[in-house]
Simulated scan of single mutants.
Amino acid sequence: MGNESALDEVVARGGVITDRHPLDFHTLGLAGCIDRLTAPLRQHGTAVHWDTPHWGIEIPAHSAYLLYQSAREALSNALTYSDASNLTVQLAAVDHGIRLVVSDDGTGFDSELAISGRHHGYGLRLMSVAVHEAGGSVDICSSPGCGTTITVTLPLD
């Protein structure tokens, strides 16, 4: 993960991280596809740490895609707003589901204001709606000066 060719395929424009390479969950796995999205953060000096104790779990394509899109939103926000030195991505099996956690040590924000969407937070709200429609849950934990943790849990049943 994190080879030079992956850096060439991932770009950040207008605060949105985009992977120009077609998604290939079968070859790269979900973690590999998400890791490609971390390239712009690494280029900006953020150390990216992985914790993926989910090996061997079959993740349906629609769940993998939703987790990938959720990671893209969380990582785009971290790149644009957090000024983080360290970022951790965790992908783990939980009771009858899969959980994605993206956590950074950046500037943080008032998560209550962000999800109300009055001035910002539309990406987080749209992510929450999509995850809830799939039967999952989203937890956004952040406060100014204390970093951010975004947790997305989807059922696998």
Rank of each mutant, 00 (worst) to 15 (best):
A93H: 14
S111K: 12
D104M: 00
V129K: 05
L41M: 04
M127C: 15
Q69A: 13
T46V: 11
L156K: 09
G14D: 11
R20L: 15
S85C: 09
I140K: 03
E133H: 14
S5R: 11
G56T: 05
R125H: 06
L41A: 01
L30R: 05
D105W: 08
T38F: 09
A74S: 10
H26P: 01
I150H: 03
G136C: 09
T27P: 07
G45K: 08
L41C: 05
G106A: 12
L7Y: 14
H21A: 13
G97F: 08
A92K: 14
Y68M: 07
H21Y: 13
L100T: 02
S111D: 12
Y122A: 13
H44A: 05
V94Y: 06
D24P: 03
I17S: 03
I34N: 02
G121K: 13
H54V: 14
G29N: 07
L66C: 02
L37G: 00
D104Q: 00
V89S: 04
L126M: 03
R99G: 02
G145L: 06
N77H: 12
E133M: 13
G121C: 10
G97K: 02
V94E: 08
D35E: 11
P144S: 01
H26G: 12
G97W: 09
I115L: 15
H26W: 14
Q43H: 03
G108E: 01
L41D: 00
T153F: 15
P60M: 13
I34Y: 10
S111V: 13
L154F: 09
S143F: 01
S128H: 09
L37E: 03
T88D: 07
D8C: 10
L113Y: 00
D110N: 14
G147A: 12
T107Q: 06
H26K: 15
S137H: 11
L154H: 05
G97S: 05
G45V: 00
P22Y: 00
